[in-house]
Design a protein around this nucleic acid. Structure first.
Lengths: 255, 255
DNA sequence: CGGAAACTTGAATTCCGTCAAGCGAGGTGG
DNA sequence: CCACCTCGCTTGACGGAATTCAAGTTTCCG
């Protein structure tokens, strides 16, 4: 745990606070697992679900989840972080509110630590409970198997960004990715950037300076507007979309 | 289908060729699903599993699998391929013999086509059958859920490669990735590169020329030896491993 | 108000991508 | 069998774009 304060563990009250009323599981709508949990499990198991409040920069140490867990993000942002031997940092994947992260091997620091990129609250659910629940409920199973492949495709897209896109293209791509995953309504063009420039850079394989410059460049072209440092408005959706799809190669000619 | 010849569909014989004898499902050892298939399903379902023979460059069109399928690679290599609007090619993920690829949304060309990078034979299994099998067999379920997260971690590692590693580091990393996934025994230092330079480049986010140069460079340093164009020997495991973990940054000073 | 951290801006450097040419193995047909 | 072609790979030279390094500037806290 590296943050300034240890994460505050909020245990559910005994009266089954895990019940669905406030969507306390972290999942919304069809994906909510509170009701099926309530139907299938006893109090002890329900109580196994904890809430963690994290500050920006807090890392989740293996001690925080000795058994494999599923994280469900309520608010904020978490990421899987890895460091090369000389200190270079990468953010391998992000999870925004309403999304979940399955880290069944975090204890073995297989390929990264879980870290909060902003003030965040997450639900922790023992993986065994999550799996058992999926076995019991065919509908949930369908929904979560579908989500698992969505996550994989998201990861594919990210690889495509990192592999063959220019910094400008990556940033454009990232802006749309954020917008979609934050569920910003179609007609709203302004939204908040929930993470720092440095984190954006580490997620996109760039330097913070480059992120800054690209933002500035996109703004100068009238594609976006930086309302404030962490408030972004998309001005020209079409133009930005084009760039995101690869209309800004390094040099016009290639193969 | 873009290859020279259409893929040859090899239907299993009626006498349940899907039975486990030859590990005909494509999965080995514990992962073999032939026996549980045989126990749980009737002939019609077993027959739903097809084998496809692909030439290098063959793409699997949606017509080839109208329903979601799971590919199991018997021999060769397949990849998920995507193209940016101006033609840049990326290989988002690779699958080597004994591995499987779950493309339940290929019909929607969500994020790429499946393509063979070498002469390949794959088993196709309807996803519904695969899922049903996992529901019926707790042991298999455990094995495959574990594999799914392994695949995700593999993708994470790959993102780390693409995001913050130099070309030399990526190549070193890739050499080990291949070696591991091909199950090359610990004491064997020589093995075959199953894909072309161009494919390596597209997988690692580099140019074919760079791949060539890095190979040459690593060879000059005595870390590897290119026995032939597609036969590689690792000379200095330790040194190469160090590079893979990030000991060769762009410039010594950073941050 | 003060200090630190995050972000921006500027200038220099370098490394990889680009372009172009050369090489070599494999296949084909005469 | 050899000339020829093709395609994948290698090698070289060069330039530009992103990183690096360094110095501001702003923002956000306490």
């Amino acid at each position: 745990m590296t943050g300034t304060t240890p994460p505050k563990i909020v245990s559910p009250a005994d009266n089954l606070s895990f019940e669905c009323a406030q969507e306390s599981c972290g999942f919304r709508g069809d994906e909510c697992i509170c009701r099926p949990m309530h139907n299938h499990f006893d109090k002890a198991q329900l109580r196994a679900a904890r809430t963690l409040e994290l500050n920006e920069g807090d890392q989740l140490a293996p001690e925080d989840f000795p058994e494999p867990v599923v994280f469900a993000v309520l608010t904020g942002v978490i990421a899987v972080e890895s460091h090369l031997s000389d200190g270079r940092r990468s953010l391998l994947t992000l999870r925004l509110p309403g999304e979940y992260l399955d880290m069944n091997r975090a204890d073995r620091h297989a390929s990264g630590e879980v870290v909060a990129l902003a003030p965040t609250s997450v639900k922790l659910l023992p993986r065994t409970v999550f799996e058992e629940l999926l076995l019991l409920d065919a509908n949930l199973r369908r929904i979560y198997w579908r989500r698992a492949t969505d996550i994989m495709h998201q990861q594919f897209d990210h690889s495509s960004d990192l592999g063959k896109k220019t910094p400008t293209e990556r940033m454009a791509s990232f802006i749309f990715e954020l917008r979609n995953r934050l569920n910003i309504p179609r007609f709203v063009e302004e939204f908040a950037l929930p993470i720092s420039r440095q984190s954006i850079a580490d997620y996109l394989g760039l330097r913070a300076e480059t992120v800054s410059r690209v933002f500035k460049g996109l703004e100068k072209e009238g594609l976006i507007k930086l309302v404030s440092k962490h408030q972004l408005a998309i001005i020209d959706f079409k133009g930005l979309r084009k760039i995101a799809n690869g209309s800004r190669p390094r040099l016009s000619n290639h193969r």
